[in-house]
Nucleic acid binder design. Structure first.
Lengths: 211, 211
DNA sequence: GAACAATTCAAATGCGCATTTGATAACGGC
DNA sequence: GCCGTTATCAAATGCGCATTTGAATTGTTC
């Protein structure tokens, strides 16, 4: 007989992160999560108090798991050129975004469309440090053209491309979409495209400024 | 005495498009919409049958209004160069996305994170034609480098940037975010950035292919 | 193995909200 | 003015789901 894997608390976190990622906070039901976790609905109250706390804990649980798999610098050494380090970060981002078993980004994506109080927390604590590092890299890449606004814009351009992959992936897996033409299944190829596309954009801004 | 503006049905559509854009389908309540529209909750059933039909109709209502304000080609003539026409489309897109009173894109943005059956409908009927036109332009801009995959990737890059503006705007206006650093309020400046950034990316792919 | 704590469970409770109902009120044709 | 239609309203109805409860079970300590 196939037995339940692990303790109830952990099974809840695992099931919750997946279900929240697939359906969002509001649409997910405690009953559904507990079914996945093979436990009784009262266990959410017992282990976490309420649905929202489970949501927060499940996100942290997923995020920490994923960070061990994908170092945020993409494995590029500190002394490498700014372009290389930027490329490393883009690849790491897209790697996490594209990973079928990565739920923290799927949840962030939903949060950006429907903020709950989770987003404000994690944005400050977990995301902002990453963001500042990327801004610093962009500043270096842009050279003299690096006004505050330009840096922000380039950051937006890059993050937008990474998240777009997430959205398309999500739309395709949604039940309402039998078959959408775009094929972005090869995420490393897409990552290389984003690197090339973005570095070219940055170069153009940098050189334009010199004339 | 300030009287209600227009007929009930239209007031419902106006209120619904705004509220659905702000809160999403699930989080919006019929009671809230009817309060905005200054009518009784039973009027939704009377005029539309149910909440979902109101949602669909409200989206179409908003979309059609916005199309009259922002022609999708950005006002660029057919015989202009592909780059110019692409730039026109990007500007038109960002114009609509950034417009405070444009709700159809805000709703699409939410749909992409939380699809209901609305998205499949409009994607096919309203969005796909626009998408095909942009793909054709990209094919032209990319020249010999225009493999099917490259075209898709560039399309994703451009759309991702446009939608990122939407997300940042939305996050800033959400109650959970007192003040996020990014200042993207100048949407035309951001549009020019996306045009420059993207055309440079496309150029790089085009010329790389020639070597 | 008795006593206590920690955990699981089936069954209630209660609330928010979409939907319905049946009773009025406004409108339009004749 | 009378009558059928269309539109609005206040008040039910009913359902889905988070949360609670109290009892049963398992685990732990001595």
């Amino acid at each position: 007989m196939k037995t339940k894997s692990g303790k109830t608390r952990e099974r809840l976190l695992t099931a919750a992160s997946r279900i929240f990622a697939e359906q969002g906070f509001q649409e997910s039901t405690i009953a559904g999560i507990c079914e996945q976790a093979e436990t009784n609905i009262a266990s959410v109250n017992y282990h976490f108090g309420d649905k929202e706390t489970l949501y927060l804990e499940a996100w942290r649980f997923a995020f920490n798991q994923e960070l061990t798999l994908y170092p945020s610098d993409g494995g590029i050494a500190e002394h490498a050129s700014a372009e290389l380090r930027l490329a490393g970060r883009i690849r790491s981002l897209i790697g996490r975004v594209a990973d079928e078993n990565s739920y923290s980004f799927a949840i962030i994506n939903k949060e950006m469309a429907q903020p709950t109080r989770l987003l404000a927390d994690i944005l400050e604590k977990e995301i902002n440090p990453q963001r500042l590092k990327m801004l610093a890299l962009l500043k270096e890449c842009l050279g003299q053209a690096a006004t505050e606004q330009r840096i922000q814009y380039c950051h937006t351009s890059i993050m937008g491309q990474c998240f777009q992959l997430l959205r398309i992936k999500h739309m395709q897996s949604a039940k309402h979409f039998p078959n959408h033409p775009s094929d972005l299944s090869d995420s490393t190829a897409f990552a290389e495209h984003v690197v090339q596309f973005s570095l070219a954009g940055i170069q153009a801004i940098r050189t334009q400024h010199l004339t």
